[in-house]
Design a protein around this nucleic acid. Structure first.
Lengths: 136, 136
DNA sequence: ATTAAATTTGCAACAAGGTTGCAAATATTT
DNA sequence: AAATATTTGCAACCTTGTTGCAAATTTAAT
């Protein structure tokens, strides 16, 4: 709980109920959640708009990051700690069975060569398959 | 033009005006387009619904594939020829300046190790940066 | 502790992207 | 050419996300 307060403070975000709840929820989840999932877990205490605005503040300060899925959905997850973050290489895993999304932001990976004239700034890898819970 | 007809035939898709126009548009574009862009290029001859249904048929038969962008948008592009396709490694490039999306499906790339218990089936890499036209 | 100023919240309304049901219009099969 | 199967357009709807505005809450200043 203190971690949550200090996360807010560190990023100059005021300590409001919605922000606290959203952070708690994301922290507890361990996997990346959609806005609908977040609101469902919190239990309908806040307006949809408020949650979206909260997410936007968090995104702006890099407290969370968003993951765009194959087929259009978006999930939100706590960002890794500052040292590791912003490495410009992001890896996420989507489980085709349970639809969970995990951040595998730890290791880097070899990037392919680009055609002449292209200049890369960031790399986002989405791996799809079966997660450890669903593998049979 | 004949290529388009044979693409449809090969995939058992009837030769309808909308299908022909969408294929022509995607072929001409060279980069991946959103449904709105496709319809705009065609010139408002078909209903939004019809274009979406056309895209869905194409996706099902792997005539085209979809690319989910960072931040939520989706683009559609002709699939590479069958021999290359389905390699389970897909690479796309998004230009932050002109918003174009290019398919770089040619070369494979090294994939990172996954935590124990995870089993990968496909890899989608989205690279963001400046394309050859926009690099200064 | 109180007040004033700055932020955040809820609500209603809206926009973009995408889907569904159904009847009319086309294609395909025979 | 007739019968059957597909595709089309329309209206309606869903989800995700945003905006404007007034009311409520936080934070800063006294």
């Amino acid at each position: 709980m203190n971690e949550i307060f200090s996360l807010l403070e560190k990023n100059k975000l005021s300590r409001t109920p919605c922000r606290i709840e959203v952070l708690k929820t994301l922290k507890l989840a361990g996997s990346a959640l959609s806005e609908a999932e977040i609101r469902e877990k919190i239990g309908d205490h806040f307006d949809r708009t408020t949650v979206y605005r909260t997410l936007r503040s968090f995104l702006k300060e890099d407290v969370i990051h968003s993951i765009s899925l194959d087929g259009g959905g978006v999930r939100y997850a706590l960002s890794p700690h500052k040292e590791v973050a912003h490495s410009s290489h992001h890896v996420h895993f989507f489980c085709n069975d349970c639809n969970s999304v995990y951040c595998i932001s730890h290791q880097a990976f070899e990037t392919p060569e680009l055609p002449k004239g292209f200049m890369a700034e960031s790399f986002d890898l989405l791996i799809q398959g079966s997660c450890r819970k669903c593998k049979k």
